[in-house]
Simulated scan of single mutants.
Amino acid sequence: MNTPTLSILIYHRVLARPDPLLPSLPDVRRFDGQMALLKRCFNVLPVSLAVRLLRRRALPPRAACITFDDGYADNADHALPILRKHGLSAAFFIASGYLNGGQMWNDDLIEHARQMGLGPEALDELLMRHKYLPMEEREQVARALAPARREQMMMTSEQIRKLLGAGMEIGAHTHRHPILASIPDAAAWADIVRGKATLESITQTPVRLFAYPNGKPDQDYRHQHVQMVRELGFEAAFSTVAGVACEGSDPLQLPRFTPWEPDRLRFLLRLAAQRRKAVWRAG
């Protein structure tokens, strides 16, 4: 049985060099190797095209696409040149409220952990303790703990236009990256609308792709948020449910997975295992 499947990868950052505090994040060397392997072994498609082909049951064999969440400046500085080197396209989901000098709460806590000499496990515990606090409280606590900023971490409007001009796609990721299930519906609607409108003002083009912040269904977003996304005219939306999209996948709740593996062999094995699992479930 030839079951068409689509592997959708999630990235957040591509670092200039490895960071012992953030071992799961790829640096430019690891990312370059992953993109070379992906290009060699898969049919890598622009996200919008991949979604259309999935709906029409017309995906090529070993279809894959690449996404980035949040809007870090290193996406434009480090990831983009590597994507262009390999002739690949990606979609970048931007939390518009942090553009042009903003910083997300988790990065404030990461820098606090670095200053305190904490390791990766202690950092993970710190982030989890704060993730589901009310949004305003979470940001207030993180700002109070954060040391002075050493660099601008998030994109500028000009970098978004640079990505678009290089053939990349821009998607929405809300304005302030709230966990939608934790705020009133009216606030969730307003934040999604503002994020979409801000990006459309920057790009002067419709924004048709969306990624749910944090992305776990029922825990981080609920059915009413999917309906909001539908009403706002998004053509596809993405969760963080680990898996591979296939026939019957909800186009407004497409699964994705993060390639944590530090070497190319395990990266490839992970991709293959996800696809086998999807085919087994389908058939």
Rank of each mutant, 00 (worst) to 15 (best):
V51M: 15
D191I: 09
L127I: 11
P18Y: 12
R270C: 08
R129D: 15
D74M: 08
M228Q: 14
E121H: 12
A16L: 06
E125F: 05
W105E: 12
Q140K: 14
A79W: 11
A272V: 06
V14A: 11
A273I: 03
L15D: 12
G171F: 07
D19C: 11
R264H: 04
K131Y: 14
R29H: 14
G33H: 14
M154P: 03
P184S: 09
A148V: 13
P251G: 06
S24E: 15
R143P: 02
F92I: 03
Q227P: 00
R161A: 02
L25P: 00
I202Y: 03
R266A: 13
P147E: 08
N2C: 01
M228D: 06
S89M: 10
L54M: 14
V44H: 02
L22H: 08
P178I: 08
Q274I: 00
A95L: 07
V28M: 15
Y72Q: 05
V14E: 11
K216V: 14
S201P: 00
L21I: 10
P20L: 11
Y98G: 11
L80Q: 12
E111G: 03
A79L: 09
R194T: 13
A64T: 06
A166L: 06
A148C: 07
L209P: 00
M1C: 09
P217H: 10
L38Q: 04
R138A: 08
P213V: 12
P18I: 06
I183D: 10
L109A: 07
E136G: 02
S182I: 00
L88Q: 07
L265N: 05
Y221G: 02
F234D: 09
E158H: 09
Q204K: 12
A242L: 04
C65E: 02
A148T: 13
Q227I: 04
P81H: 08
P213F: 13
I94M: 10
L145P: 02
V279L: 05
R129T: 10
P262A: 10
T3Y: 02
Q274R: 11
H86C: 09
S24Y: 13
V193D: 14
L209G: 01
L38M: 09
L271V: 05
Q140L: 13
D218L: 08
L80W: 14
R222N: 11
G248T: 01
G171Y: 07
A187W: 08
E235V: 07
Q152M: 12
R149M: 07
F257L: 04
G119N: 13
Q224Y: 10
R56D: 15
L126K: 05
M155I: 01
A236D: 02
V226M: 08
L163S: 07
R55Q: 15
V207K: 04
G171K: 04
D263S: 09
E247F: 08
G248R: 00
M104P: 02
H223T: 05
S201M: 06
M128Q: 15
T203A: 15
H112W: 15
V229M: 10
I66N: 04
Q253P: 00
K162I: 03
A272G: 04
P184A: 09
G71I: 09
A273W: 15
D69P: 01
T240E: 01
I94E: 11
Q115V: 11
R222S: 09
L99Q: 07
D32F: 06
R149V: 05
P18E: 10
E136W: 01
N75T: 03
L9Q: 05
Q34E: 14
H78G: 01
A146E: 06
L254D: 04
D185T: 09
M35L: 15
F42Q: 01
R194C: 12
R13V: 03
H86G: 07
D27V: 04
P206T: 11
